[in-house]
């Protein structure tokens, strides 16, 4: 939390809403990238990131100034992404149940995701992780938060972060062996 951020937050809270943009502009890329890694879908990422910034504005009065503002934004975005994925999962389950009973004939929600986007190798590797593993791996290894920060952002214990990080790195290692032999070359 730097002084400029603190000043900008104070300004927004005192009613000068125009201070919000300079406050969050440094994070416009990182938040969208985080949402993209977590949802693995460009459209979902955009909606998650938008919602995260809107929520950040609405909840700014509850921000604890002793915290890192960036990590607070990460936390909002990660929660938003999780909510969205859960919702999609529930919708898919409802669709499948309906399909089993012969009610629905339309394509399943999210069924077009694979076709809509050419999945990058990075994304396919992230697909192989469980939800918590992916959250932990993205925050710790791709966004380079430390273990404690990651735990705080995800609202879980450091032990849980370590356990999931360990299995995530193991799976990523396997994915590299399987799908990106070139990443192992050049030693």
């Amino acid at each position: 939390m730097n002084e400029t951020e603190q000043e900008l937050i104070t300004m927004v809270l005192s009613g000068r809403a125009e201070a919000f943009e300079p406050l969050v502009t440094p994070y416009r890329g990182p938040i969208l990238a985080l949402a993209y890694r977590l949802t693995r879908d460009r459209e979902d990422a955009r909606e998650v990131a938008q919602e995260a910034f809107l929520k950040a504005f609405r909840s700014l009065g509850r921000f604890d100034l002793s915290r890192s503002f960036r990590n607070w934004l990460f936390q909002i975005a990660a929660n938003e992404a999780r909510d969205r994925l859960r919702r999609a999962k529930r919708e898919r389950a409802a669709f499948e149940a309906a399909a089993r009973e012969g009610i629905a004939a339309a394509p399943a929600p999210e069924a077009g995701r694979e076709r809509r986007e050419t999945r990058s190798g990075i994304m396919r590797a992230l697909d192989a992780l469980g939800r918590r593993e992916r959250e932990v791996f993205v925050l710790r290894d791709l966004q380079e938060l430390d273990i404690r920060e990651t735990a705080r952002v995800l609202g879980c214990s450091s032990i849980s972060v370590r356990v999931n990080l360990s299995s995530a790195r193991r799976k990523i290692r396997e994915a590299i062996r399987r799908d990106f032999p070139h990443l192992e070359e050049g030693r």
């Binding site: 890329g29 969208l32 990238a33 993209y36 890694r37 460009r42 990422a45 955009r46 990058s120 190798g121 990075i122 590797a125 290894d141 791709l142 790195r169 990523i172 290692r173 590299i176 062996r177 990106f180 990443l183 192992e184 050049g186 030693r187």
Partner: peptide
């Protein structure tokens, strides 16, 4: 080495903007 190359590849990859 593998993890650091994976991270570098992730950094180089274009993400939405």
């Amino acid at each position: 080495e593998a993890l650091s190359r994976f991270k570098a590849a992730a950094k180089d990859e274009s993400v939405p903007d």
